[in-house]
């Protein structure tokens, strides 16, 4: 069967610990996507993570114009004035076609606990905006606290490793909005087990480009012993639904 892939986890921009083969531009990302057969990607800018969200988010929009790339902004709590207040942030996202957010609390020195990011998470939850979070930016206790305070949050965990089922399952059972990137969930037959227990709607295709190869993420889906419809959901459908868009770009 032919699958269309919509990558939930790619990056452009220069970054500090770049290995020799990694690329940095949107053109190079699109070229690699074409080589491996990925149609679209949700992308954030490295400068938004490593330098300043207000700078990197603008660079992202400027660099992805007219490409099969959708923007994902990096956000901070607004208290220091580095980020608009939640209502203004929402207005800007709508005006500029941004439908997803990422947070880097460890790298950027804040917490997603309610006393610090509660207003931001309230807005994200109330508007059904997908929030992406690298697992090295948080811990399972904090994920549980975030979801306890914001039970309808659409939270997708990225780069979450394979040693996680004993933490993951109880949270998956309790919170329907908790999802994860499939590629780094390298539990043997784990894709099948998650689909059986929680449904294919809880997994998203993500490559990790340009940090990691795309081939592993693709093979994990094409060889999965799940239905074709479940494969379509993981490869493309779940992200498209989260971003509330049709195949229009």
């Amino acid at each position: 069967m032919h699958l269309t892939y919509f990558d939930c986890n790619a990056q452009i921009g220069k970054y500090s610990v770049k290995h020799p083969e990694a690329f940095t531009t949107a053109d190079e990302l699109v070229k690699e996507m074409e080589r491996v057969g990925v149609s679209e990607a949700l992308v954030f800018h490295s400068m938004a993570k490593e330098y300043a969200p207000c700078v990197g988010n603008e660079m992202l929009l400027a660099e992805i114009e007219c490409k099969p790339i959708h923007p994902c902004w990096v956000v901070l709590p607004h208290h220091t004035g580095e980020m608009p207040a939640p209502d203004e942030l929402l207005s800007q996202m709508k005006a500029r076609g941004v439908r997803a957010l990422k947070a880097y609390p460890n790298a950027q020195g804040f917490t997603l606990a309610d006393w610090c990011a509660g207003d931001l998470l309230d807005m994200i939850e109330a508007n059904g905006i997908p929030l992406f979070l690298d697992m090295d930016q948080t811990n399972w206790g904090q994920v549980a606290e975030i979801l306890s305070s914001h039970p309808k949050l659409n939270l997708t965990l990225l780069r979450q490793s394979y040693r996680i089922d004993r933490f993951l399952y109880p949270l998956m059972e309790k919170y329907a909005g908790l999802r994860m990137e499939a590629a780094t969930y390298q539990v043997a037959s784990g894709i099948e087990e998650v689909c059986k227990r929680f449904g294919a709607g809880r997994l998203l295709f993500g490559t990790g480009l340009p940090y990691t190869d795309a081939g592993p993420a693709i093979a994990q889906i094409t060889y999965a012993e799940i239905s074709d419809e479940e494969k379509r959901l993981i490869a493309e459908g779940n992200l498209r639904k989260l971003l509330a868009m049709t195949s229009d770009k």
């Binding site: 080589r35 491996v36 043997a188 037959s189 190869d213 081939g215 592993p216 693709i218 093979a219 994990q220």
Partner: peptide, 18 residues
Amino acid sequence: DLPFLDARPQVGRVAFAN
């Protein structure tokens, strides 16, 4: 590394390599 890891990602890594 099967079954410490799923086998499929490594197959994809080699199959899609340049």
